[in-house]
Design a protein around this nucleic acid. Structure first.
Length: 423
RNA sequence: GGAGUGGUGGCCGAGAGGCUGAAGGCGGCGGUUUGCUAAACCGUUAUAGGGUUGAAAAGCCCUAUCGAGGGUUCGAAUCCCUCCCACUCCGCCA
């Protein structure tokens, strides 16, 4: 959500941000309408407040007269009429403000200046690590997974549906090992505080991080109007909703393991085989809160933490900076980490590291006080996966695959798994 | 699920239709005193929005906010309704 002042003071920056996303055609009219609504609404507000001031003065007059034993019937009659006028104006105001608020939720964040313009085709690889293994002879993960008895996709489909995984034996243990390994890495070596959060959150939390109102169809909802989280970003970022942090609390670094749920409505048929795209998956999430001036450096740091996880798993990857048009709705800048999966012959996104500037913080009302006595400012929020499991497991099963179909376990994971080979 | 009690500023806590944006205390900030520290004393200290003066820093005026939303009233922290949250007891259940 943007500051309404942007409409008055720097509408050009807003417009330019939408242009760089390639969305000006679609959203230019939204900006124009919002600007008009904001202006009109302030005019109505001025009239309301003026009448309220008059009413307040009159009410005090009533009090004074009654105390003095005088009659106040005429003032009361006048003030009653005033109350009706205020109520009518208030209805106008509410309608205008409601529409304006709806428009605000339509507008995505403004990309940072160093984000390339254009769509997906303008994404840029900024660095690569490791040697991508050739596709030749490497079998896809669903084949080795089934052969080794660690993946049972048919039974997952039977008990829940397509896109729900059953891991078993060494596969189940691999998931548990990854949870422990990634949380240990984040807490012991990268300085994150580990948190354990609810998997169901309320509507307000989903609004806070930007999943709602625009993307309600992507989420699973319960009959109690609770949402299955699509990522631990939602509960963890909302942890400090409506709070004011001390400057000394920043930067704040939190990590959480959670299961994640996504309906992936409309995504069927495209790159969905095996574990590539599923409805329920595991993820260790990294979340940071930063002072605005520190946020760009914090994004680099956060990204390096996710990269470190891949390096220790000995998985080749590349880092892409997303072009404006491919950057997520609430993000101002995103690095995608893509791991190489030779069996399916593709780079797979395993982590998306983003800075949201104050876009989420404004929605969720998360502030900090720069110094004692100063006014609170919105923090900048950041997050990234460290890492998302199914695709990490794909890469592990494919990149570390041996000719006999067994899989070598990366050194860092061996103590957790208690084995150096799967199969 | 049933019965009850409660939710007030950064924190604690008074207030029970008008003089209450809110006593008092703690904490914070500024100052006085003090060889330093402590203590004492004085002052100050909520958030958001709108308007206005100003180059700006900031000032001034107004409005709203006492868990959230509605209602009653000329006027609501205070009365009524709904919801949320916390606590106590009962019931149920891993």
């Amino acid at each position: 959500m943007h500051d309404l002042k942007l409409l008055r003071e720097n509408i050009a920056a807003l417009r330019d941000g939408m242009r760089r996303r390639g969305k000006l055609d679609a959203l230019g009219s939204v900006i124009d309408r919002a600007e008009v609504l904001d202006r009109e609404r302030r005019a109505v507000l001025a009239r309301i407040e003026e009448k309220q001031a008059t009413r307040n003065a009159a009410s005090q007059d009533v009090a004074r007269r009654k105390k003095a034993g005088e009659d106040a019937a005429d003032v009361i009659a006048r003030t009653r009429a005033l109350g009706d006028e205020i109520a009518a104006l208030q209805r106008d105001y509410d309608a205008q403000f409601g529409e304006l608020e709806g428009l605000q939720y339509e507008l995505p964040n403004i990309p940072l200046a160093d984000v390339p313009e254009g769509g997906e085709e303008s994404n840029r690889v900024v660095r690569t690590w490791g040697e991508p293994r050739p596709h030749d002879g490497v079998r896809p993960h669903w084949e080795v997974g089934e052969q080794l008895g660690i993946l049972d996709l048919p039974r997952g489909a039977k008990i829940a549906g397509s896109g729900f995984i059953v891991y078993r034996g060494g596969g189940a243990r691999l998931v548990r090992s990854l949870i422990a390994f990634l949380l240990d890495l984040a807490t012991r070596e990268h300085g994150y505080e580990e948190v354990w959060v609810p998997t169901l959150v309320n509507r307000r939390s989903m609004m806070g991080t930007g999943q709602l109102p625009k993307f309600e169809d992507d989420a699973y909802v319960t009959t109690d109007d609770l949402f299955l989280i699509p990522t631990a970003e939602v509960p963890v970022t909302n942890l400090y909703r409506d709070e004011v942090l001390d400057a000394g609390d920043l930067p704040k670094a939190l990590t959480a393991y959670s299961q994640c749920f996504r309906r992936e409505a409309g995504a069927h048929g495209k790159d969905t085989r095996g574990l590539i795209r599923v409805h329920q998956f595991d993820k260790v999430e990294l979340v940071r809160y930063a002072a605005p001036e520190d946020a760009p450096a914090q994004l680099e740091l956060l990204t390096s933490h996710a990269e470190d996880a891949l390096r220790r798993l000995e998985l080749p990857y590349r880092v892409k900076v997303l072009a404006a048009g491919d950057t997520g709705f609430a993000s101002a800048k995103t690095y995608d980490l893509e791991v190489w999966a030779p069996g399916v012959n593709a780079w797979l996104e395993v982590s998306s590291c983003s800075t949201f500037t104050d876009f989420q913080a404004r929605r969720a009302n998360i502030r900090y006080r720069p110094a004692a006595g100063e006014k609170p400012r919105f923090v900048h929020t950041l997050n990234g996966s460290g890492l998302a499991f199914p695709r990490t497991i794909i890469a592990l099963l494919e990149h570390h695959q041996r000719a006999d179909g067994t899989v070598a376990v990366p050194h860092a994971l061996r103590p957790y798994l208690g084995a150096d080979t799967l199969g």
